[in-house]
């Protein structure tokens, strides 16, 4: 974000750079400020009582409420007021959009069944990422799922008893990562999802009242 601000500041100080006359202005008009339409959509969904979820960028220490815009065949698409997107299924992260270094698609593999059932075991997960030159890079990870035992977590004003499941993965030519899932009755109430090396970790928590 700091870079973006520096960049925008730099451009605005120096005047507008445009490669195709007219297009910049047109796009500026065609694409309402990211919060424009999205904010209206978001507000409307929020009012209509759509399901919400809190997602947090752990590295930046920021968080935002997301509303469910679509649920299709069990796959939930979330977005926030700033029109960032997150896709989950059974509390597992499937994709992100707009985080700078997005997970374009994730297949969490057998970890889903292990985590929801509270079983330990091994699994494989696959991530697809963009490399900056518009190639999709596929990374495979070998993971171990383990039950770390009961944990109480705060959901709203209440403490809720959950079981903490950890999925520790290596591979993908990186240092590896650990995803955490706080599960109660076969539902993920809270989680830490690894997105990509460039972004880091996305934390997820159901808002109060869903425990």
């Amino acid at each position: 974000m700091k870079h973006l601000i520096r960049f925008v500041l730099c451009l605005s100080l120096a005047g507008c750079a445009s490669g195709e006359p007219g297009v910049a202005r047109l796009v500026a008009r065609a694409l309402p400020a990211p919060t424009g339409v999205a904010a209206a959509d978001y507000a409307a969904l929020r009012r209509s009582g759509a399901t919400t979820m809190i997602f947090a960028n752990e590295a930046a220490g920021t968080s935002a409420e997301f509303v469910e815009v679509t649920s299709r065949g069990g796959t939930q698409s979330w977005r926030n007021e700033g029109n960032l997107g997150v896709v989950t299924r059974d509390g597992f992260l499937l994709a992100t959009r707009g985080l700078g270094h997005d997970a374009m698609a994730i297949d969490p593999g057998a970890a889903v069944a292990l985590v929801l059932a509270g079983n330990s075991g091994v699994s494989q997960r696959v991530h697809e990422e963009l490399d900056g030159d518009d190639h999709l890079i596929r990374k495979s990870y070998a993971c171990t799922v383990e039950n770390r035992g009961p944990r109480d977590i705060a959901i709203g004003a209440h403490d809720v008893a959950t079981r903490l499941m950890a999925e520790t993965c290596t591979g993908g030519a990186g240092p590896g990562f650990t995803n955490l899932y706080w599960v109660r009755s076969g539902r993920v109430l809270q989680a830490r999802h690894w997105v990509s090396a460039g972004f880091g970790t996305l934390a997820m928590r159901a808002p109060s009242g869903r425990g």
Partner: peptide, 19 residues
């Protein structure tokens, strides 16, 4: 040049497909 600072950009989320 093949590795911009943001690999996937900050483009807003696309519209998910509705049932």
């Amino acid at each position: 040049p093949g590795r911009p600072r943001l690999t996937s950009g900050r483009d807003t989320a696309p519209t998910p497909i509705q049932p």
